[in-house]
C-alpha cells in the first residue's frame, strides 16, 4: 500500500517559488492501476519522481508498505528503486550503446541475478512487449521510438517491482501496440498484484484504470471512473 501524505515540492526560479506538487495526499491499495492526467507542466512527472524516490519532497512523506521514504538514507533509497520500483520514462532513458536485451538485463544485474537467468527473463519480457526476436540484440539507437518504448517497459518489469511508475507509456506507440501495452499493464496489476501509476494524455488508457487523478497547478483531485468490472460488463 502506498500512502502519500501532504506532499509538497517547491523550486526556486529567480525570485519566484514554484510548487509543482502542492499538498498532495492520496492512498493506493496494492494491485491498483491508477492514472494521473493533467496539462503539460502541471507537475505530473515531478510527482512520479517523488513517488519513485528519485527526488526528495520539500515537505510531506511517501509511505510504502509502512516504510517512510523521507527517513530513508540514500543507500536504502537505491535498494528501494532497484527492488520495488519500475520506471518507464517519457524519453525512455535507455543506454544507447547496449542492445535491447542488455538494457533489460541491467536492473537484474544490479539485483545480483545470475547471467543465464537474467538473459532468459529479458528475452521473455521482450517477447511480452512484442519486440521482434531479431531486434533483441540490436543496439538501442537502431530501434524506432516505439520499439525503444517497449524495451523501456520491459526494463521496468525486469525485477518484478511492486510499483510501476510510467510516464506516457503509450505515447510513442501505434494504436494496436498501445492497446497491447495497456492490456499488459492491466494484467500485471490484476494477476501479479502490481500497483501501477501512469501519467498519460491517452484517454483510452486513463479510462481503463481503476482510479483516475487530475493534477492541476500542483493540486491533485480524483475523478470518478468506471471500474474494470463495470467496463467489462458495458464493453
Amino acid at each position: 500500500m502506498i500512502e502519500v501524505k501532504n506532499l509538497v515540492r517547491t523550486f526556486k526560479s529567480g525570485d519566484r517559488t514554484i510548487k509543482p506538487v502542492n499538498d498532495v495526499s492520496f492512498e493506493l491499495e496494492q494491485g491498483t492501476l491508477a492514472s494521473i492526467v493533467g496539462k503539460s507542466g502541471s507537475g505530473k512527472s515531478t510527482l512520479l519522481s517523488l513517488l519513485g524516490a528519485l527526488d526528495k519532497p520539500t515537505s510531506g512523506d511517501v509511505v510504502v508498505n509502512g516504510v517512510s521514504l523521507a527517513s530513508m538514507p540514500d543507500g536504502k533509497l537505491t535498494n528501494y528503486r532497484r527492488r520495488d520500483i519500475g520506471f518507464v520514462f517519457q524519453q525512455f532513458n535507455l543506454i544507447p550503446n547496449l542492445s535491447a536485451v542488455d538494457n533489460v538485463m541491467l536492473p537484474m544485474e544490479f539485483s545480483g541475478m545470475r547471467k543465464a537467468a537474467r538473459a532468459e527473463r529479458a528475452r521473455q519480457l521482450l517477447e511480452q512487449v512484442q519486440l521482434d526476436p531479431d531486434k533483441h540484440v540490436r543496439r538501442i539507437n537502431r530501434l524506432s521510438g516505439g520499439e525503444q518504448q517497449r524495451v523501456a517497459i520491459a526494463r521496468a518489469l525486469a525485477n518484478e517491482p511492486k510499483l510501476i511508475l510510467a510516464d506516457e507509456p503509450t505515447g510513442n506507440l501505434d494504436e494496436q501496440t498501445g492497446e497491447h501495452i495497456i492490456e499488459l499493464l492491466s494484467t500485471l496489476s490484476r494477476d501479479h498484484n502490481t500497483t501501477i501509476l501512469v501519467v498519460t494524455h491517452d484517454r483510452a488508457l486513463a479510462n481503463k484504470t481503476d482510479r483516475r487523478f487530475r493534477l492541476q497547478q500542483g493540486r491533485l483531485t480524483e475523478e470518478p471512473v468506471r471500474t474494470r468490472a463495470t467496463a467489462a460488463l458495458t464493453g
Binding site: G75, T78, I95, S111, N159
Partner: peptide
Amino acid sequence: RREIGVLKAIGAPNRT
C-alpha cells in the same frame, strides 16, 4: 551524466 542518472534511477549502486 544523464546515463549515470538513469543507472542510478534503475537501482545501480554507486560502487558499481
